[in-house]
Computed example of a mutant assay.
Amino acid sequence: MEKYNSLIGFIRKTFNSEDFIPLHAPHFGGNEKKYVNETIDSTFVSSVGEFVNRFEKEIAQYTGAKYGIATVNGTSALHMAMLVTGVQQNDEVLTQSLTFIATANAISYIGAHPVFVDVDRDTMGLSPKALQNFLEKNGKKGADGFTYNNTTGRRIAACIPMHTFGLPSRIDEIAAICEEWNLVLIEDAAESLGSIYKGQQSGRFGKIGTFSFNGNKTITCGGGGALITDDEAIAKRAKHLTTQAKIPHPWKFQHDEIGYNYRMPNLNAALICAQMEQLDRFIDNKRQLAGLYDNFFKNSDIEFVKEIEDAKANYWFNAIIVENEQERDLLLTETNNAGVMTRPIWDLMSSLPMFKNCQHDGLENSIWLSERVVNLPSSFRP
Rank of each mutant, 00 (worst) to 15 (best):
G199Y: 13
D144H: 09
G142M: 11
D347R: 09
G142N: 10
L185M: 10
L369M: 14
K312W: 08
Y109G: 00
E58G: 02
Q326N: 08
S350K: 09
I69R: 02
N150M: 13
N336T: 10
N365H: 12
D231E: 12
N299K: 14
F146C: 11
A245F: 06
Q275E: 14
L193M: 13
Y315S: 08
D118T: 04
Y4W: 15
R54N: 06
K3A: 02
S6I: 14
R121W: 06
G139D: 11
T218M: 15
T342A: 12
L78E: 07
P382W: 00
I196N: 14
N133E: 13
G215N: 07
L348D: 01
G86C: 07
M82Q: 14
M354V: 01
K217I: 01
G125D: 12
W316C: 08
Y62C: 07
F211Q: 06
L292P: 00
E364T: 15
H240N: 05
T39F: 07
K298C: 00
H240E: 05
E303W: 03
E136C: 15
R372N: 08
A130I: 03
E58K: 12
G225H: 09
P265D: 10
I21S: 14
I174C: 00
G153M: 05
I321D: 04
N53A: 10
K57W: 00
F165L: 07
G68N: 03
S192G: 07
F297M: 10
T151M: 06
F44D: 13
A143S: 15
T152Q: 00
D122C: 08
V52R: 11
T123P: 01
P265F: 00
N149V: 09
T147N: 14
N214C: 13
G74N: 05
S351K: 07
N261T: 10
S76R: 04
R263N: 03
S6P: 03
S6C: 10
A319T: 02
Q326T: 12
I186H: 01
S300L: 11
T39L: 10
F134H: 15
S378N: 03
A143L: 14
E277W: 08
K140I: 08
